[in-house]
């Protein structure tokens, strides 16, 4: 018959007051508490960053860009979040209207990685044009603005471009999508 493997019981657990085996480790405990404090400071910093919008969805994340003559102004967020709805708005000046319509070319990255869900108002036509899409809206007067409802589908750094066909003004921006 097989014999079970054994080992003698040793008094290996450290004692308190020379009588009670507890296995307390004061040096470790103090080190751990220091570590714990560090972690909590780190956590506090993360929360502060989140509140301020460094991780997106906060005041610091908001940004805007406009062309030299102010024909096109872009309100967007520098930091987006994965699968989270967000709105990018483009405002047009009077020069943007040509032949009673506004034509805007957007790069494909707005559609795919940034996950454009819908455009408000809906464009009258959308034409595949190179590595992007050309949208057309009929327009009578300004101010006009168009909103893109985004829900990014890929984390990481993303680049997008919008171009106004009437003046050829281009805005290119990098945004960061948090996982």
């Amino acid at each position: 018959m097989a014999t079970p493997r054994t080992r003698p019981v040793e008094d290996s657990i450290s004692k308190v007051g020379n009588e009670l085996a507890v296995g307390e480790d004061l040096a470790f405990q103090r080190r751990w508490w220091r570590f714990e404090t560090t972690i909590w400071i780190l956590f506090a910093l993360i929360l502060a960053a989140d509140l301020s919008g460094i991780f997106g969805r906060g005041p610091l994340a908001k940004a805007s860009a406009k062309t030299a003559d102010g024909t096109m102004k872009l309100d967007y967020e520098r930091v987006l979040r994965y699968e989270t709805p967000d709105v990018m708005t483009i405002h047009f000046g009077p020069n943007a209207i040509q032949n009673g319509r506004i034509e805007l070319w957007v790069s494909e990255s707005v559609i795919k990685p940034l996950g454009n869900q819908r455009i408000i108002p809906q464009p009258k036509s959308s034409i595949l044009d190179g590595d992007g899409i050309l949208y057309t809206w009929p327009a009578a007067s300004h101010p006009n603005s168009v909103s893109f409802a985004l829900a990014p589908s890929a984390p990481g750094s993303q680049k997008f471009t919008v171009r106004l066909e009437s003046t050829g003004d281009t805005i290119t921006r990098h945004v960061w999508v948090m996982p």
């Binding site: 993360i46 929360l47 989140d50 991780f55 989270t84």
Partner: peptide, 15 residues
């Protein structure tokens, strides 16, 4: 809410 990103959930847990 509508934000199931890891960032969001991590911040919520920390809070």
């Amino acid at each position: 809410g509508h934000d199931p990103s890891v960032t969001n959930c991590t911040c919520a847990v920390i809070a």
